[in-house]
Amino acid sequence: MQPVVPEITRTSVTNLINKGERTDGRALDQYREISLETGVIKKAEGSARVKIGNTQIMIGIKPQIGEPFPDTPNVGVFMTNSELLPMAAPNFEPGPPDERSVELSRVTDRGIREGKIIDLENMVLIPGKKVWMIFIDMHVVDYDGNLMDAAALGAMAALMDTKIPTATVQDDEVVIDYENMQPLPLKDKTVMCTMAKIGKELVSDPSLEEESIMGARISIGIRSDGTICSMQKGGERPFEKEEILKAIDMAQEKTKELFKYLPES
């Protein structure tokens, strides 16, 4: 059951935002405090813990050798998966991934895929037969709004933290050398900026309270050169074209700040 939002909360938050203020004192385009750590899980080849406000996600990367998809025999494979753990919010239920978790996985996946972030061509061992498969698993531990941006930032940091073993081919057999780990081949970086429409305004990094009353939401994935690589609208209300264009401007501006949390290279 979806929690009922008190009417007086809806009114007071909206009124405040229409005046250019937010309940937690932030400016409309301001993010909550962000923290990002990498290498937190030593059993994973790459990992990150990301916090935006009280939202917290653990991300682990595991590589495996596997078969490529038949239609793309000459590129590596990666898969993005997320779990909205029932510990993360009172209304998250145990069980198979629900539509919210599938959306989160797919939006994160699309940003990385369409941004051409991972150098998949460089992950082929035996064309058509053996390639590296990269699993990005995102564990949502605490849910306090804006999972999209946290997931994208954390997944990017975890990918940059990832070291995979050196693999060579000898007599059509793949030989893995765990002694020699090397960075996962990456071509670029991407992060995401989400804005919620509340009243007449767009606010970035919506909190849980803001998400509960927002009309609509737009998430925009941006590459390091400022180009857009993915977009997702959510929520039950419509957007106008001007709002979308404004959101893109905001995203291009705000993602400059988000990129600073990632390492240089």
């Binding site: 899980i41 059993k43 653990m58 595991k62 029932p86 145990p94 698993d137």
Partner: peptide, 18 residues
């Protein structure tokens, strides 16, 4: 009670879910 292991908690990735 629900006990769950993260896919990345072990050497070989564990399939998510119970």
């Amino acid at each position: 009670c629900r006990y769950n292991m993260a896919p990345f908690s072990v050497e070989d990735r564990k399939r998510p879910g119970p």
